[in-house]
Design a protein around this nucleic acid. Sequence first.
DNA 1: CGCAATCTTTACAAAATCCTAACGGCAGGG
DNA 2: CCCTGCCGTTAGGATTTTGTAAAGATTGCG
Lengths: 236, 236
Amino acid sequence: MGKPTVLVIDDEKDLLELVRYNLEKEHFEVLTSPDSTKGLEIAQRQHPDLLILDLMMPGVGGLDICRQLRGDNATAKIPILMLTAKAAEADRVIGLEMGADDYLTKPFSPRELVARVRAILRRSSGEQPAAQVVRRGDLVIDTLRHEVKFAGKPIALTATEFRILEFLASRPGRVLSRDQIIDAALGQTAAVIDRTIDVHITSLRKKLGTGGAKIETVRGFGYKFRDDASEEAVSM
Amino acid sequence: MGKPTVLVIDDEKDLLELVRYNLEKEHFEVLTSPDSTKGLEIAQRQHPDLLILDLMMPGVGGLDICRQLRGDNATAKIPILMLTAKAAEADRVIGLEMGADDYLTKPFSPRELVARVRAILRRSSGEQPAAQVVRRGDLVIDTLRHEVKFAGKPIALTATEFRILEFLASRPGRVLSRDQIIDAALGQTAAVIDRTIDVHITSLRKKLGTGGAKIETVRGFGYKFRDDASEEAVSM
DNA sequence: CGCAATCTTTACAAAATCCTAACGGCAGGG
DNA sequence: CCCTGCCGTTAGGATTTTGTAAAGATTGCG
């Protein structure tokens, strides 16, 4: 991942240069356009990581661009920092409701500009916190979100069911005794009959439907998650 | 809070008086110095709310003062309005780059001067127009302004409610335990029963009305902010 | 000092989940 | 093929967890 690209659209060339100077100094890749129509095209073609937009421009204004980009799935997620000369509350609100992610009223100090740009990029990029995901074929277990999907369909599991499935699925092919499962999924202090696990396994299989077959019984030992030859573990 | 103090440093005494006259008329407390070295000392000693600086002065120039003040933590945050006779772009850029918050080219109208001074003070005095905004569908959370809107309608939240909502909403889809919420919203030193969070969640849901449904409870784990978008189908 | 707002705790009811027990089926060894 | 022990499943009561109201504690402010 290289430098984040920022596209600035403003009809004031002075301001364009000011912004460019300050952002480049902070190692951002900067594109500029004094023309809103052309700027919009650039945004659609280049997919910058962030767009800095003047609210008030002759012809196509910032709000129009905002709307355009938000309407297109391909560009809907590009964060927008709106610049505005008017401090009037109405304008801010409109800008926000139109989909801007932040705003800055002119005049602003370069320090503030850079700080905002950083903040927005941090939010929009690092926001997906490297999900803890275990994938076994059609089965996806997301620990952080606490979601399980089988064949794309979300499966509602209870806390205990979830923990047991997670424990089994992250050790495919390995036989795990009921006691091991109890320790891992319920905590070592838990005092429960080992047959309790059977009950949870049953309801897991039922909820997983076809996918339930992935949980195999190893008579006399415990259970194991089927290791279909080569399913690669994707976990981070 | 009394009148804001403005320190003006410029070697042209006429200009000094002009500025003083106009600012005092608008109820600012005005200090002046025709000597940049002495001016710097005054700035360091008195901590004015705003500094108006001439870029070009014999001896120690505006940029030098700028640098000095910015280098010292005690004075680094004093906003600076730079005056310059040169309209040349380079100077403006440099002036801003050195940390000035705004600039004005001579000659300027008194009205403009006062307007700029007001603007800068408004910004730096905590009533910042700029904001950190988290948007999740109809819900808009403005961190700096401490405002929440749902479907355009402002929602009055208490401090704790606000922090909890902000914490959840900025990590959509992710399950957060009550302990995590306590750490983030109340501080790691806070010693409260985790059920306290439930109470705040309840009142948050109530205040958010329809939007309250965005806060989901994940039984056995905690809460999460619903992440409508982004679910990738995984199958192959 | 008293008020008002907020935060925390407590208490209780409702809901969801968990556990045990029990019954019946089935695998595998002889 | 029969027997025995293990497993799957179901069901109901026990337990845990959550929602919510209300009271006590704390804080901020005039």
